[in-house]
Amino acid sequence: MSSAPAIPISRIEWQGAVRIIRSAFPPIDLFEDIADPADWPLLISAEQKTNPRIMATIGNLDLVPAERRVGGAGASFLMAPFTHVSTNRPSRFTNGSYGVLYVGISFETALFETIHHHARFMLRTREAPGWTAQFREIVLSVAADLHDLRGQAAALAPVLDPLDYSAAQALAGSLRAAGSNGIVYPSVRHASGECAALFYPDGAASPVQGRHFDYHWDGQRVDLVRDAGSGAVFRVVDLPAGES
């Protein structure tokens, strides 16, 4: 396993990066309406006295250092992945004990990443074929100094394994403990695509909700994507390595 000092750090500045999430997750009023995160703890304390379920909505705010919290319009899309975590929902760069904000450099990359994970869920739960849950596109910018795994596929093959996340989680845990802001890495779902895994919400900014999409499950894979706004339907075609 490569150690943290052996991995270079690159300045990543992406405009028009994309995150795709389930539409079932609504905005969180506290993050959206109160722009100054310094005011949040007192407001939460006051709100809990009349609304004991407030923490279920907000999640665990203590998981985000106060100086790295973000507020204002769209902040839910940046904060929620860090305040709603569970060891029952691990991912490539976390065992579920801390949050990670995953972002694709382009819409296509984000789409292929989410299609893969949605298909795994549908197959595991043996869902019947048909149109499934709706997803929403979040367009945002990324500006952060990240540990850079690009161009190191051979040396870091276990970290980029398509299915086994154990090496990736171990590396991410050590990097985060050493003060890393996150990781930029080649997508293993979209040839030539790139992704960022941010360890804190302030590595991204200006999130704006874009389009809504429906995914069609054929019993084995997601084969169609429908733009819920225009009604246009697109067939999902797996790309050969090296194409995008």
Rank of each mutant, 00 (worst) to 15 (best):
W40G: 00
R176M: 10
L101E: 02
W217F: 08
E113D: 14
T114L: 10
V103H: 04
E137M: 02
L146S: 01
Y98L: 05
F107P: 05
M122D: 13
G193V: 15
D36V: 01
S141T: 01
V100Q: 07
A75T: 09
G99D: 00
V184E: 02
I138H: 12
H84D: 03
P8C: 07
Q48A: 02
A167W: 12
P81A: 08
L198I: 03
R53F: 10
L175M: 12
C195S: 10
R53G: 04
R226F: 02
L101G: 05
R124C: 06
D202A: 00
R189E: 07
A119V: 00
F121T: 05
V70F: 09
I7Y: 05
W131T: 02
R124Y: 01
G219S: 02
T132C: 14
A144I: 01
V64S: 02
E32M: 00
E137S: 10
E194S: 13
G59F: 01
L140Q: 14
A66L: 06
F93Q: 11
G231V: 13
D39R: 11
I34M: 09
N181L: 13
Q152R: 15
A177S: 10
L224Q: 15
Q15I: 06
F121H: 15
I54K: 13
G16Q: 13
F112P: 06
T114K: 13
P81S: 07
L61N: 03
G104T: 05
